[in-house]
């Protein structure tokens, strides 16, 4: 299924998600509000997106962007589900109840960005030690041990 068919399919089934759909570098992107995130994910799962490839976050300075990449094996389509999480209240619903694959990945996002996932069964750090201070992939993370590479360019 190519990207246009996916758009039609999506628009036919969930008209409210249709205007949020865009195409970037050949991938379908669905940007939703924080409140619609979990239900949009559920809608997509019901649409046939049975596989959660990855969940990650991007620190957009003003807010965090959550990026989930979903795959529908049957129809051979991929989609990005994106939403924004405010910096002062970094929390969002978990997707573990839809795809258990989100378990470790959301823990990693929590570890690296400090975004907590509501309803996650085991919200702990995963890669860093439990007593680590700060969330390293945030752009405002400071650590005197980080050596900045000299600017050769």
């Amino acid at each position: 299924m190519n990207i246009d068919e996916l758009r039609e399919h999506l628009c036919a089934t969930y008209p409210d998600l249709c205007p949020l759909f865009s195409i970037e570098f050949g991938d379908g992107v669905l940007i939703v509000d924080r409140g619609r995130y979990w239900s949009a994910a559920k809608d997509l799962r019901d649409l046939g997106f049975d596989r959660l490839g990855m969940i990650t976050a991007v620190d957009g300075i003003d807010d965090f962007e959550i990026v989930a990449r979903l795959t529908a094996r049957e129809i051979g389509a991929h989609i990005f589900l994106k939403t924004h999480v405010p910096r002062d209240e970094p929390a969002i619903e978990t997707l573990t109840d839809l795809w258990p694959a989100a378990d470790w990945q959301e823990r990693e996002v929590y570890d690296m960005f400090g975004i907590s996932f509501r309803g996650h069964p085991d919200m702990r750090r995963i890669l860093l030690p439990d007593d680590w201070v700060g969330h390293p992939l945030r752009k405002d993370y400071r650590d005197e041990r980080i050596i900045r590479r000299p600017d050769y360019i």
Binding site: G53, M54, T56, V58, D59, V67, R69, A101, D103, W104, Q105, E108, L137, I153
Partner: peptide, 18 residues
């Protein structure tokens, strides 16, 4: 910019180990 703003590795070993 000449540097990526963010790079994320979707690691199959990570997901399989779960």
């Amino acid at each position: 910019s000449p540097r990526p703003y963010r790079m994320k590795v979707r690691s199959p070993a990570f997901c399989n180990l779960a």
